[in-house]
Design a binder for these strands. Structure first.
Lengths: 248, 248
DNA sequence: GAAACGATTTGATCTAAATCATAATCCGTG
DNA sequence: CACGGATTATGATTTAGATCAAATCGTTTC
């Protein structure tokens, strides 16, 4: 049994405290409840090892050793897998409060690339420490489970989107989801800047960039949204929801 | 803090022991390593509360309270979500050794239906007990994380399949994956019985049942597989892999 | 064993989105 | 600021897979 040694448990207390604190904040950040600037300040003050990742830089790469998970303090990331033939598939977009890297726990190596789409600040959480700590902190323990469970449930929604929805429905679902995520983080739900290119968005949604572009134009003609390059304005949220029809 | 009370920790020792044991077996079952009939016997002998679910019966339904996760001892399940408009989307197929219900942890209510496609035996694992127990059993704790992480990683593969692959590639990928899963469980990798209908398979793969049927026929003409209703025989595994080309 | 129903196969169209093609526009950089 | 590469918009054409339709095969039921 690879039981944690007692010695290990007594390592640098300060260090552990830092992690505890950052995860108390993470708890606020990561559960699907609203949170204010206070919690943000907390995270800001208490986060463990912070790091800046510049636009275009990798946070981690496929195959690199898994040692930590990452909480995004600010900025925007994409995760993607690259294929032999050069094709890229975007598996997710991640913003403030999201946790990245959970899919690597089982293999102990990262299974996708994480790239910053704008200069971002992340909080690196050594997974071993986190795991040890969660053994003695029930709240943390539960939260870890919840966060992972939520990711699984969310992925199932995306599978539904990719498997059952038409292109228009996918775009509508994406915009509504993004709006809701921005809103939950205290930003405007009605107007936001896309951080990804049409191509990356298409890759994520299983569409070609031309299709994405065309549907943005169509939505604009129909008065559902306003599009100015990357600036999106949701003008008729109900209309977008109606587009989704029976699909959740 | 909802820290587990000491009292709670002293509850029925026998009961806990049963769960411990079933999870030691689960460990063997659920990690991506091979396992023999011995471990199966273990699971058989030690599993907590076992239950039979007959073909067509629900193990759980969308919205029902989440109290336990389920380890499949034998049989075959589908999980699916039902929409307002009556459409069904199959989110997964699950067989011996798989764990179901992990996506419900975060909401504490099930987010999909689980239906037995053949009469199956499951092992019900009360999640609260499991969670408590994992606080004092590091191995169990790690395994829980690994199992959830593996599900996330697997879902990302499915997203890739739905987002990037053509119909033929999806079928090929599905058959190869199913074959590999059967093989890992000690069954034939080359010949197996499909438990789902063409419609359910199509729903899972984002295709219509006619398309699934046509591609099965085409694969058969090309000598890649043999099809007799639900009995599938993989005749040219390399050919199927070649079909996947650059896609992992 | 006949009837009834569900599952599967196969064929004939139709269509949503891909592909191909061309501008127009944006943006980083020397 | 002008250049060149990336990004976006939009039109014309093609195509993979959906849809519509019908026949066949299987299996459950009475």
């Amino acid at each position: 049994m690879n039981m944690t040694e007692p010695i290990q448990k007594e390592r640098n207390v300060l260090n552990q405290l830092k992690v505890v604190c950052s995860l108390c904040s993470l708890r606020e950040l990561c559960l699907p409840i609203g949170f204010g600037p206070d919690e943000l300040q907390q995270l800001d003050a208490l986060a463990g090892s912070k790091r800046l990742v510049r636009r275009g830089e990798h946070l981690y790469r496929t195959g690199s050793e898994f040692t930590a998970i990452y909480a995004i303090r600010g900025g925007f990331f994409k995760t993607s897998v690259l294929h032999d033939d050069g094709r890229e598939h975007v598996t997710g977009f991640h913003m403030m409060g999201d946790i990245m890297g959970l899919d690597a726990i089982s293999t102990e190596a990262h299974v996708c690339d994480a790239v910053a789409l704008e200069t971002s600040e992340i909080c690196e959480i050594p997974f071993e420490k986190l795991s040890d700590l969660s053994m003695i902190m029930p709240v943390l323990h539960q939260n870890l489970h919840k966060i992972m469970s939520r990711e699984i449930a969310f992925d199932h929604e995306i599978m539904l989107m990719l498997g059952k929805m038409r292109a228009e429905e996918r775009l509508a679902a994406f915009l509504l989801n993004l709006s809701q995520r921005f809103s939950a983080r205290g930003y405007s739900a009605a107007s936001f800047q896309l951080r990804m290119t049409r191509e990356e968005l298409g890759s994520y949604l299983g569409l070609k960039l031309e299709t994405v572009s065309r549907i943005f134009s169509r939505f604009q003609e129909e008065g559902l949204i306003g599009v100015q390059k990357k600036l999106i304005e949701l003008k008729d949220t109900d209309g977008l929801k109606r587009l989704l029809g029976g699909l959740a």
